[in-house]
Every structure is written in C-alpha cells, then in structure tokens.
Design a protein around this nucleic acid. Structure first.
Length: 190
DNA sequence: CGCGGGATTGACT
DNA sequence: GTCAATCCCGCGT
C-alpha cells in the first residue's frame, strides 16, 4: 500500500530507517517501475549544517519547510538530480535523501534519479501522485540488517558531518529474498 | 551582478 | 588517488 503523509510526519531518522525495504514506484509512460529502497540519509532541522535548510527558507528550500511527504528534487553539480521526501511536521525543515534502490545501475542518488527519470518536474509534488510514490509491500527488514553511519559528501558540515544519519541495507537483495523464502517455508509447515 | 562551491559520478593517473 | 563536467543557488558587493 502507498505510504501516507503520516508516515513521513515522524522524526526524520525514523523515517529514513523505515524507508529501507519500502518500494519506490515510478510511472514511465505506460510502464510502472518499482525498486526496493536500500540506502537513505536523514537531513534534520534548521540547525543541521549539512542540510540545505540550514541557510533558512529560500526559493529552493521552501519545499523542506512544507507538508511531510512532498517530493524535494534538486539539481546539483551542474548535471545531477537528487530525490528526497520531506519529513516531520509542517514548518520544520527536514527530508530524507534516497541514495540507492535495488536495481541494476542505480546505486547512488544521481544514478537512481537517472534510471527512474526523476527530475525537477516532480519537485514539490505530494508523495502520492500519479507519477511517483512509495509503497509498503510487506517486506520486513530485521533491524540488525540495517547499518547506520555518517552521511556522504558533507565534510563541510562540521560536527554535523559525523552524525550517523545514513542508513544502508546490510545484506544483498538476493540474500534478503532467501531469508524471506525460508521464513515463508517455516510458516507454511506449522 | 559576479563569484564560489555543491547531499555526484565516471574517467583517468 | 585526482579531477573535470557544468548549472544553479546563496551570498557579498
């Protein structure tokens, strides 16, 4: 089922952790492409020096101050896009960057945007819309299979650079499918 | 209005 | 490991 705004309204790090194992779904023409989210980062609040919102509300960052669940897509390095979902209560600037999904050639925030045709046309849209959304498909990731560590590419952010706000799936998707199957078999036998 | 730098990637040494 | 690509943003003037 598609995630509702209430899912995103919670603490950014909680949302970032719980997005691991959810599915990013994108309509491309007549096709619908879905891929499991495997890596995220939390950008939390006006004091987080790694966050775009640390410079206050601007034309670009106003999305982060808006309602939870909105898509925040920005252009960076003159050639790349990055996809985020706004988190926390309205007025509190925060978002989760989707850094990787389980798809060939889509590891990395810019590569997944390229693979799923995500660009600034989607910026500001509500999380659930006709073109892109996030689904819970009932995949349970044990907490021990999610690693956290410092965020990437934010060395300029001083003490905020070392916050363990990056979440990664610790096992390969093939392993995950295997675990899922064995659990399924156990259940069926009982 | 000019300038410095970026929540990245891929190519090359 | 280093570095270029290349546009937009945010800030200082």
């Amino acid at each position: 089922m598609r995630l509702r705004p209430d899912f995103f309204k919670r603490t950014t790090t909680t949302v970032a952790r719980e997005l691991i194992g959810k599915y990013l779904v994108r309509r491309i023409g007549r096709r619908t492409v879905a891929a499991m989210i495997t890596e995220t980062e939390a950008y939390h609040g006006p004091c987080d020096r790694a966050s775009h919102a640390s410079r206050g509300k601007t034309a670009r960052t106003q999305i982060m101050f808006g309602p939870p669940g909105s898509w925040y897509v920005y252009f960076v390095y003159g050639m790349h896009h990055c996809a985020n979902v706004v988190t926390g209560p309205e007025g509190f600037p925060a978002a989760v960057l989707i850094r990787a999904v389980d798809m060939p050639s889509s590891h990395g925030p810019a590569r997944l945007c390229k693979a799923l045709r995500i660009d600034r046309q989607l910026n500001g849209l509500p999380s659930r819309n006709a073109h892109i959304w996030i689904e819970d498909r009932g995949v349970h990731i044990p907490r021990t299979h999610i690693l956290c560590g410092p965020r990437i590419g934010v060395a300029y952010a001083g003490a905020w650079a070392s916050k363990p706000w990056r979440f990664t799936l610790a096992v390969q998707s093939a392993t995950l499918r295997h675990i899922g199957r064995s659990k399924f078999r156990k259940k069926r036998r009982r």
